[in-house]
Amino acid sequence: MPPTAPPSPTPPPLEHLLHLEVTVAPPIEIGATPGGLRRVVPITGGIVSGPLLTGRVLPGGADFQVIRTPTETVAEARYVLESDQGERVYVENTGLRTGSAEDIARLRDGLPVDPARIYFRSVPRFETDAPRLAVLTSHVFVGSGVRHPDTVVFDFFRVG
């Protein structure tokens, strides 16, 4: 009798916990570096909502980007959320945005692009001392984003 294969893991469920609308200033272009075109996008504020918390995105963060190729951008954003109760959450959100060279150029120039034409996913990490928000530090999250000319919209999902 042949050996029985061990059971395969089942795909984990996703639970939507946060919706962010992050306002941004025009990018600061650093230039073509050995790693790609480097730029910094200042974060000026925004709102956060969802079943876990409501509040705002504090100004002062930034999205540090490298446009590696005409079709691929890597983003590393760092910013702070503040709940309506005054709890603060530090966020490091690492993302990948891909699309056609034409669409990525339009985004770079601050022009609108149909979100269905862009792949924009991220892996956020959170730090907080708020006991009520401990789920943020004890689970893995994934994000799905949309870039608008002056706003970045993200939905974050807890991986079950």
Rank of each mutant, 00 (worst) to 15 (best):
T73H: 04
V66A: 02
S83P: 07
E72M: 13
G60I: 03
V80P: 09
T73I: 15
D84I: 05
I67C: 04
V74C: 03
A62N: 00
S49H: 11
V80T: 14
G50L: 09
L81D: 00
V57D: 03
R78I: 15
A77Q: 01
T69L: 05
A77I: 03
G60H: 00
V48D: 03
L52Q: 06
D84A: 13
V66R: 09
A77G: 11
D84T: 11
S83E: 08
R68H: 11
E76Q: 15
Q85C: 12
P59R: 08
L58V: 10
T54M: 10
V66K: 04
Y79H: 09
S83N: 11
A75V: 14
D84N: 11
V74R: 12
V57P: 04
I67V: 15
S83F: 06
T69N: 00
G61C: 00
Q65G: 01
V66C: 01
Q65F: 06
D63M: 07
V48F: 00
R78D: 11
T71N: 05
G50R: 08
Q65Y: 04
S49Q: 13
P59A: 00
T73E: 07
Q65D: 04
R68M: 10
R78P: 12
Y79R: 06
G60S: 07
A77P: 03
G55M: 02
A75M: 15
I67N: 04
D63E: 00
R68N: 06
I67T: 13
V57E: 05
Q65H: 01
G50A: 05
R56W: 09
V66P: 00
R78S: 14
D84W: 08
G50P: 06
